[in-house]
């Protein structure tokens, strides 16, 4: 009995050590996002609270905590409350399998990439539940839009993952990183990286694909009826999902915790820092796209997903497989 207690304690300690940095970095990332957005538009952005406005997110969070939570009278109360909890939980549990170095990973499971994919595809439920339970027109329309959008772009992300897996021969995330020791997959699979990046934008409902919460048409989409801490949880979950997608992109294509070249000064920096650096790089790209690209129309979005990305990534699977087969490069078990 005592051993179980010890194991549980150790694991909880590890989980705490992972979750607290993730939550703090989510807060920092919100600030970074707003700052980059402002710099592109020649504004200042949040710069008042703390040095360079660094504590802006903390102040916002504090404000949300002390605000009243309003639950609409005709809403489905249980599901209405459950929706932000689901979003937040799903955004955080996926971090369990992200490898920060060869040994620093909470759960080094055999099907790591499938787990990541599954959790990111479950993310749609928070949005659908929130939109439906609000019992109001705009949230419902936003939720329906987002369901269709996320399901469509998941398909192309799945096929891109197949491309990478063909080169690796394992579903373990550490194996995927180690397979990139010679060359990062961004170089041979560059078109797939571009499609992954755009699909990740659509999957996390970021601009230019933020149609589920298009202000001009739908007030603010599925989160219209939410207030206070519940709204903040949606918001945190969204940004945690964005960070997760960046982590997924850097593990699949940018070599995860590997340094760019295995020579002296780069060797000294620990793997976790390299991963964080790559995640930040991808996130800055995410933020820049938000600032410079206008929003897509809904039919254009669907056309892009089903008629361009899906066929292209399928053809690329055939090309990758044929290349690996012809040059006898297929990975062995």
């Amino acid at each position: 009995m005592f051993e179980y207690f010890n194991i549980v304690l150790l694991e909880s300690y590890k989980i705490l050590f992972l979750l607290v940095p993730v939550l703090v970095s989510v807060a920092m990332i919100v600030w970074l996002d707003r700052r980059i957005w402002a710099f592109v538009q020649k504004r200042r952005g949040p710069n008042v609270v703390g040095p360079f406005g660094l504590f802006q997110s903390l102040a916002d969070a504090l404000k949300y905590i002390f605000k009243e939570i309003i639950i609409p009278a005709s809403s489905n109360k249980i599901i209405f409350i459950l929706a932000p909890i689901v979003t937040m939980t799903l955004a955080l549990i996926a971090w369990a399998v992200i490898p920060f170095s060869e040994t620093h990973v909470l759960a080094n499971i055999n099907v790591g990439i499938l787990y990541l994919f599954a959790v990111s595809s479950l993310g749609v439920y928070g949005i659908i539940m929130g939109g439906w339970a609000s019992n109001s027109k705009y949230p419902f329309l936003g939720a329906i839009r987002s369901a269709a959008q996320m399901v469509s772009y998941e398909v192309s992300i799945g096929i891109i993952i197949i491309n990478v897996l063909l080169c690796v021969g394992s579903l373990n995330l550490n194996d995927i990183v180690l397979a990139q020791k010679k060359i990062w997959f961004i170089i041979p699979l560059f078109p797939m990286f571009v499609i992954f990046f755009i699909s990740a934008l659509a999957e996390t409902n970021r601009p230019p694909f933020d149609l589920p919460e298009a202000e001009a048409e739908l007030v603010s989409g599925y989160q219209t009826e939410y207030s206070g801490m519940m709204y903040a949880m949606f918001w945190l979950g969204e940004y945690a999902n964005i960070l997760l997608m960046c982590a997924m992109g850097s593990i699949l294509f940018l070599g995860g915790w590997l340094p760019p070249v295995e020579i002296f000064p780069f060797n000294l920096i620990p793997g976790a820092l390299w991963l964080i650096f790559k995640i930040l790089l991808l996130f800055i790209l995410f933020a820049l796209v938000k600032a410079i690209v206008p929003r897509y129309r809904y039919d254009q979005l669907m056309k892009l997903g089903w008629k361009i990305f899906l066929p292209f990534s399928l053809i690329w699977v055939v090309i990758t497989a044929s290349y690996l087969f012809y040059f006898n490069l297929l990975p062995t078990i």
Partner: peptide, 26 residues
């Protein structure tokens, strides 16, 4: 059977049940 479990999550929960919900709501 971790592969089957994950496939169950991806295919049934991630896609099929979303379509169920979609249809039922619509």
């Amino acid at each position: 059977a971790e592969f089957l479990g994950m496939m169950m999550l991806i295919v049934y929960v991630g896609a099929v049940a979303v379509l169920f919900l979609f249809v039922v709501m619509m």
